[in-house]
């Protein structure tokens, strides 16, 4: 305990806010290392986190969340990533093609798509805690976590919450027989410039223009692949129902 506390105190004073090695990441997040850990200075609005997601069938994938103020990006697979902006826009990027589709507020409303921004920004909706009971406070790596337990979607679930960055350390839906598990594997600072660079030089189209762009080969291909997001993004939808879809796109839920 003493060592970890010391590490945290040191971290805020001494450590640079650079990308950390895998070893450093694992030290930062591991709970029972007896050695001193290098902890970065983290600002909740400017960071990158990665979760390892495991579903009930044992399938695993990575989910990355990058925050830049109230804008944020979520990536679940290599083919696409998504951004939610403070303007209320939702943008889907296709990095291979260097193309993007922007859904403005009116477009999302016309499609009857509602995103729970709060849940996406925090990976697990902060509202969930109000339905669970507090368990113990633990120091896990660099982070003080508050435990929560309770039923979510009728399943006993556990949440380890890092209040300083407003993100889960781990969330397990279905405690005895895991249904879905989110585990934090990477956390690092992320600058505004680095964030802007991620979305540079994409040829963008408004979703409203997709219907008149059938002659654009990229749009034609994407239309056939069913690229339009129908609200299946994220971990919990606004009703708190679990969504297990990996990737999200092409998974229609009208």
């Amino acid at each position: 305990m003493k060592n970890r506390l010391l590490a945290l105190i040191l971290s805020s004073v001494l450590l640079p806010t650079l990308s950390l090695s895998a070893t450093a990441q694992s030290r930062m997040l591991e709970s029972n290392k007896g050695t001193s850990v290098d902890c970065p200075t983290l600002i909740a609005e400017h960071l990158k986190v990665q979760y390892q997601v495991t579903n009930g069938k044992g399938q695993q994938w990575e989910m990355t969340l990058i925050r830049n103020g109230q804008d944020f990006i979520i990536q679940r697979d290599a083919a696409t990533f998504e951004q939610w902006t403070s303007h209320g826009e939702y943008v889907r990027y296709f990095p291979v093609e260097k193309r993007s589709v922007t859904y403005r507020k009116g477009d999302l409303r016309a499609l009857n798509v509602q995103h729970d921004r709060d849940q996406l920004y925090h990976v697990v909706s902060p509202k969930l805690q109000t339905h669970m009971v507090k368990t113990q406070v633990q120091q896990l790596g660099c982070f003080e976590t508050q435990g929560f337990a309770g039923k979510v979607n009728g399943l006993e679930s556990q949440l380890l919450w890092i209040d300083t960055i407003g993100l889960p350390y781990q969330f397990t839906l279905g405690a005895t027989q895991p249904n879905l598990d989110y585990k934090l594997v990477i956390v690092e600072p992320f600058s505004g410039d680095a964030y802007s660079a991620l979305t540079q030089d994409f040829q963008d189209i408004d979703f409203a223009d997709v219907g008149d762009s059938e002659s654009d080969p990229f749009i034609a291909k994407m239309i056939n692949q069913g690229f339009i997001e129908h609200g299946s993004s994220g971990f919990y939808n606004s009703e708190g129902q679990a969504i297990e879809a990996q990737g999200g796109h092409g998974n229609h839920s009208h």
């Binding site: 477009d107 016309a110 499609l111 009857n112 979703f207 409203a208 997709v210 219907g211 008149d212």
Partner: peptide, 8 residues
């Protein structure tokens, strides 16, 4: 036109 394209 746009609202119709969106099926709305």
């Amino acid at each position: 036109d746009h609202a119709h394209h969106a099926g709305n």
